[in-house]
């Protein structure tokens, strides 16, 4: 397992330089004016960054209010009868709720749970799998749709939430199955 860890660490370090090197060299071989092309493409970067600001402010402020007011704890208490039915420890519920809302928040919850219960406890493994298999759905929705000024998101939000829910349930089920 030590070897696997080394491979993973190496791969995540060399991936980006390797991709950049490959594309730049490939472009040069194909006689693309690479410097001009790069600058031409990069111009758009600023506009995109600025365009997403209002969407990101709207999303993060709403989530921030929800978290700061302590609503998360109340939701955890309300949902705990349901989660105990499916073999989900109550302590991992904040993680499940936080995962789609805030990336840094979820990371914080995960670290806290791992430090309290241990990385190799069932709860520690469960939050690790939730963190690794989930995504910050609301951030992605805000940034991606915001970048093209889409306000009517149609069925994307419902489908995204259902996928999140399924991911959480699958994490609980798999961890209980493998490590339980």
């Amino acid at each position: 397992m030590g070897i696997l860890l080394t491979i993973i660490q190496t791969a995540s370090v060399i991936a980006i330089p390797a991709i950049v090197l490959f594309i730049v060299v490939y472009g040069a071989i194909k006689k693309v004016k690479i410097y001009e092309a790069f600058v031409e493409g990069a111009k758009e970067g600023f506009n995109v960054g600025v365009r997403i600001i209002p969407y990101l402010v709207a999303m993060l402020v709403a989530i921030g209010i929800f978290r700061a007011g302590g609503a998360m704890d109340i939701l955890s208490v309300l949902l705990s009868p349901i989660t105990s039915l499916i073999g989900m420890p109550a302590e991992s519920l904040p993680m499940a709720l936080m995962r789609p809302l805030s990336g840094s928040g979820a990371l914080g919850v995960m670290s806290e749970i791992i430090n309290t219960h241990g990385a190799d406890s069932i709860i520690g493994r469960m939050v690790s799998v939730m963190m690794g298999s989930g995504e910050t759905t609301f951030y992605v929705l805000a940034v991606y749709f915001g970048s093209v000024a889409v306000n009517k998101t149609r069925h994307a939000v419902a489908a995204g939430i259902i996928a999140d829910l399924v991911g959480i349930l699958a994490s609980v089920w798999l961890v209980n199955l493998i490590f339980g």
């Binding site: 991709i19 730049v24 472009g27 693309v32 790069f38 031409e40 493409g41």
Partner: peptide, 9 residues
């Protein structure tokens, strides 16, 4: 976006 432009061209 710059790198993508090279890849595109």
């Amino acid at each position: 976006l710059g790198v993508m432009k090279i890849a595109e061209e």
